[in-house]
Simulated scan of single mutants.
Amino acid sequence: MAALHQTLTLVKKDLVLELRQKYAFYGILLYIISTVFVINMMMGKPEEQIWNAQFWVVQLFVSVNAIAKSFMQESRGRLLYFYSVVHPRYFIAAKLLYNMLLMAIMSIIALVSCIVFLGNPIINVWYFVGVVMLGGISLSLLFTMLAAIAAQANQNAALMAIMGFPIMMPLLMMLANIARSAFVPVYQPGLLNMFLLLIGMDVLIIGLAMILFPFLWKD
Rank of each mutant, 00 (worst) to 15 (best):
F143T: 11
L102Y: 05
I109V: 15
A93T: 14
N124V: 01
G135E: 08
A68C: 02
K69G: 12
Q6N: 15
L196E: 07
M43D: 03
P121M: 06
P166E: 07
M106D: 06
N193K: 11
K13N: 11
L142E: 09
G135Q: 06
M210F: 13
I123Y: 03
T7P: 02
M41Q: 15
L29H: 01
G207P: 08
A110G: 07
W51V: 08
L60K: 04
W56F: 12
Q152P: 00
Q21I: 07
I92H: 07
N99P: 04
S181R: 11
L79Q: 14
A161C: 00
G164L: 04
G119M: 05
Y26H: 07
A151W: 11
M103R: 05
V64N: 10
L97E: 03
M169H: 02
Y83K: 15
G135N: 09
V186D: 09
I28M: 05
A24L: 14
N177E: 15
M103G: 01
N99A: 08
L191K: 00
G136Q: 08
N65Q: 13
N154M: 08
I122R: 03
M100E: 09
M210L: 15
G130I: 04
L118S: 02
L142A: 11
A150M: 09
M194T: 00
M160T: 03
A209C: 00
I115W: 09
M210N: 09
E47P: 03
A93W: 03
V85H: 02
Q155L: 11
L101W: 08
I199G: 05
R78F: 13
R78M: 12
M43G: 11
Q155H: 10
L8D: 05
N65V: 06
N65D: 04
N65G: 06
A182R: 02
M163Y: 12
I211V: 13
T35K: 01
R76T: 10
A153G: 05
K69Y: 09
L134V: 14
S113T: 14
S70F: 03
E18R: 10
I149E: 09
Y187I: 12
A2P: 00
M1D: 10
R180V: 00
Y83S: 13
T144M: 05
I28K: 04
D202F: 03
I122G: 05
E18L: 12
V58C: 13
Q49M: 12
I115H: 05
I199C: 02
S140E: 07
M100T: 15
L15G: 00
N40G: 14
G27W: 02
K45P: 00
I123H: 08
Y23T: 13
T9C: 01
L212I: 15
A94P: 10
M168F: 04
Y127W: 09
F25T: 15
S140K: 04
S63K: 02
V58S: 08
S107W: 07
A161L: 12
A157T: 13
